[in-house]
């Protein structure tokens, strides 16, 4: 890797931080930078996520989590550095990623049932698929059953709880047959009991080979359910297992002068 001033010039030959030159990671970012209006929202972001790993992308609001997701998904250009998804540039790997949006980014005025939302996972740019129903219902049914939501198939998603909505979106992702799932603020508006249910379900999916990253500004009591955490505040402050990544220095870098609250929330010592 050649250092060219502030930024790095990176290509596919650069070694992965996790597995060196023979990289088999699902996602690899090397020195990735994203710029909005002249200021860096992501600055020299370097990390990698192995296949079949459940990760949490943790950081403060406006720390660049959604931007990083967009860059991984190929809908946000990076100005420097590289990102590879399954060894390919993001724009060449469409279809291998499914994105589950934060609730603010969904137009809930569309009165769609759970069945209809999951069915959208079968929609591709090829419009003729809209008429191809053979096998579709079976796929939708299978996806809804895997997230325990088949009994709610005719219920409007706008009238569901936060946890149920997430399950329906995950079922849609399963229909898309993507091997990487990006969940943006998946625990926002989800009660604690449902959060545990969700994370257990996601762990089952990762055991089946899915690579899953959940962006969240606060892990609460869930940290130990993840294989690893990536701490992001415009750049990657730390990556590793939950019990080693959250050092006081890292928490200070993530949350400024009030890291104590997060520390006691995140490592199984939840405040009353």
């Amino acid at each position: 890797m050649k250092n060219q001033g502030k930024f790095f010039k990176v290509d596919i030959e650069d070694p992965c931080v996790r597995c060196g030159f023979n990289c088999t990671c699902a996602i690899r970012a090397v020195g990735a930078c994203v710029e909005f209006n002249g200021s860096l929202v992501l600055d020299d972001v370097t990390f990698s996520v192995g296949k079949g790993v459940l990760s949490a992308l943790v950081g403060p609001n406006a720390g660049g989590k959604s931007t990083l997701f967009n860059a991984i998904a190929g809908i946000q250009d990076i100005v420097h550095g590289s990102i590879f998804v399954n060894g390919l540039p993001p724009k060449d790997s469409k279809g291998s990623i499914s994105y589950i949006p934060q609730r603010e980014n969904v137009n809930w005025r569309f009165s769609l049932t759970a069945l209809e939302v999951v069915d959208l996972g079968l929609v591709k740019n090829n419009s003729l698929l809209a008429f191809s129903r053979k096998g579709s219902l079976e796929k939708v049914r299978s996806a809804l059953e895997r997230v325990d939501m088949w009994n709610y198939k005719d219920q409007l998603i706008s009238q569901m709880s936060g946890g149920q909505r997430q399950r329906v979106f995950i079922a849609r992702a399963l229909c898309q047959e993507a091997n990487i799932l990006l969940l943006d603020e998946a625990f926002s508006g989800v009660d604690v009991a449902s959060q545990f249910g969700l994370i257990d379900m996601l762990r089952e999916l990762k055991e089946q080979g899915k690579t899953i990253i959940i962006a969240t500004h606060d892990l609460n009591t869930l940290a130990d359910r993840f294989d690893e955490v990536i701490c992001l505040n415009r750049h990657v402050c730390a990556q590793g297992s939950p019990d080693t990544a959250f050092t006081p220095e890292v928490l200070e870098e993530l949350y400024g002068s009030h890291p104590g609250m997060f520390l006691s929330h995140s490592l199984g010592h939840h405040h009353d």
Partner: peptide
Amino acid sequence: FDPVGSVVAGL
């Protein structure tokens, strides 16, 4: 319904 999700899905 889901502008970002649909783009990521390839639409």
